[in-house]
Design a protein around this nucleic acid. Structure first.
Lengths: 349, 349
DNA sequence: TAGAGCCTGGACAACGTTGTCAGATGCGAG
DNA sequence: CTCGCATCTGACAACGTTGTCCAGGCTCTA
């Protein structure tokens, strides 16, 4: 069977046949294969004249080195994987970008995928990335059992978990101080005279949600306030449920005078609900968002630095790859309370 | 030299030696190499008993197929590249996510990188992705000359440009109807009685900016309004310059009564400036943003569907790969005017 | 001018996988 | 009991690159 036919067969859809290889370049330049490799990689030991001939052949053929083959030979892929929850979530944009910048500084490419908050999909993705032999993995956990990564880590895949801790496995973790941030935020409301404070957050099986709830409880306890179970809504993620939860807290005989929101999605909905009410209700949300200062009143938030999370994680990952890192560590980055008005409203009763 | 030493040498930083290969699995299971391959790929022709033995060996060794090698052999990588401007920009999150979803549906991974609006970096990134032998490339152009991709496209890399057209090269392009959207937006202001309307946009060398400017001029001309050059600010990208531009338009003897913003970054700043003013100024912005409805007044925008852009582009890319696509095409997706209040304010004079 | 040493270039194997093909094995039929 | 056939298995080459190593030619010195 003629060479061309066989190749075309193997690559259906390639409209214009195949790519030239170093062998083709070598043949055209009238030199050996390895000489082409040397030119391409800028290795010494090639006369200027030979180099020119090779370069001409490369340009003429439109040759580009096949990094897959290179990777196979060299063992390192110079790429890292990022498994996150949802690229469309504004919280992850800066995080992802920060990881990419660090990767770029280390000459690595970033391969990423969204788990859509599905543990199975997270695993599938992470393992697919390992099969691609990424040098390292930054994972924002969706699931709570990461033992499936053990063989990979043993095999040398640098791994860092971000935003939420790894499950049942000892690994590097970079987190925001969710507990402290929530406690500060709620304490801020208490400081402005509130005692009946609502908490609307995600399911407590999500680590960040649980920690923020813990912060809420701690702040209340510190102030000697007994928490009424009706003040808390856990696991209300959809806008509809958040709305209902907020409205319930705000009605009834003993309505809350302030609300603390456990994450940015909840915040968006709660802010909507509050905007519709005539009586002002104090509000503090976890996570900052754009234009929070332009709303009336400005929205007071506990801000995490998502870019710093990404940067810290990626840097740690490359330090693992350097071999300069030994024991896994848990790093907590501080949050920042940004006052803009909504959190400083006095109780309305 | 013993095997282990040689290998450890080749892969510095791998803390725990090397990954098992099919050969290792074969040895452990007492079968041939190809039999392992068959089991891993679910090919027929393996007795249940053999399969079980192989599977046990795989589990025991923690083997995972090396997709790099597989790619080398098979010719297709099942990965596509996405070159965008900035992952942290909220406009690109949903776009990126949409591309990823389509890729996933086709069993492909997504490798992405940010060009940071730098043509050189765009090229560097795109070519690095080609060297990885991605099957296809979705590019949001930063530069205006993409001839550097010609050899790649000839070699069979499916390529689609999004958001901005390709430069000096014939390729698939998926765009928003920037011209029509801007024209509609400005016509909307004119329809509410405005005649002195300001335009603040990006540098006209950026295609989207130029098109939107063209839409502005067209709407004004359709209404028989002569545009004063002082009403236009082109190339004001930094918040400071946008602010100054807006303030200049709003002061002086003949201030504008309405402003049209050419993109979301401009919008954010202009909205800030307008919020500080007592006299209401009508406003329409290109690009939607979260919570636009919560501001006072709600912000009227010309919305693009960034997810649809990504989805359309990715689908087109995979159709190229199917071979079912022939001539490059230019697709324009419609925009949508969303009225929320700011664009319906009457002129203040 | 011969020998030593350096510089350049190329042959070859290896990376881990898959496709091809032929050999081995077992079974039933003649 | 042997042959034929179907089924299962494995040896081998190839994918495109890089590392090793050696050969040949050159220069420089004695």
């Amino acid at each position: 069977m003629p060479e061309t036919t066989r190749r075309a067969d193997r690559l259906p859809g390639n409209r214009y046949g195949n790519r030239p290889t170093m062998k083709d370049v070598a043949a055209r330049a009238g030199v050996g294969l390895k000489t082409v490799s040397r030119v391409v990689n800028g290795e010494p030991g090639v006369t200027p004249d030979t180099e020119r001939r090779v370069q001409e052949a490369i340009d003429a053929l439109g040759f580009r080195r096949n990094d897959s083959a290179r990777v196979l030979r060299k063992g390192r892929t110079a790429s890292i994987g990022l498994v996150l929850e949802d690229l469309a979530d504004p919280f992850y944009g800066p995080l992802s970008r920060a990881v990419e910048e660090v990767a770029r500084a280390h000459g690595a490419l970033l391969i990423n995928g969204s788990s859509a908050e599905d543990p199975e999909r997270e695993q599938e993705l992470a393992l697919a990335l390992c099969a691609r032999r990424v040098d390292g993995l930054v994972v924002i956990p969706a699931g709570d059992d990461h033992r499936y990564l053990e063989p990979e880590i043993r095999a040398g895949v640098a791994t860092v978990f971000v935003d939420r801790p790894a499950g049942r496995i000892d690994a590097d973790v970079v987190l925001s101080d969710n507990y402290g941030g929530a406690r500060d935020g709620v304490a801020h409301l208490i400081g402005h005279g509130h005692r009946r404070i609502g908490f609307i957050g995600d399911m407590p099986r999500i680590h960040t949600a649980a920690e923020r709830l813990r912060g809420y409880r701690a702040a209340m306890e510190d102030a000697g306030i007994a928490v009424d179970e009706h003040w808390m809504s856990l696991g209300a993620t959809s806008p509809e449920r958040v709305r209902r939860a907020a409205e319930e807290m705000l009605s009834g005989p003993d309505p809350v005078t302030a609300i603390f929101a456990g994450n940015n999605r909840v915040t968006v909905t709660v802010v909507r609900v509050l905007a519709e009410r005539s009586r002002p209700v104090a509000f503090v949300g976890f996570d900052d968002f754009e234009l929070a200062d332009l709303l009336q009143p400005g929205v007071t938030v506990v801000a995490q630095d998502s870019a710093a999370l990404g940067r810290t994680a990626a840097e740690r990952l490359f330090r693992q790859l350097d071999g300069s890192l030994l024991a896994p560590e848990r790093i907590e980055l501080p949050t920042r309370l940004i006052t803009r008005g909504s959190g400083e409203l006095p109780p309305a009763d």
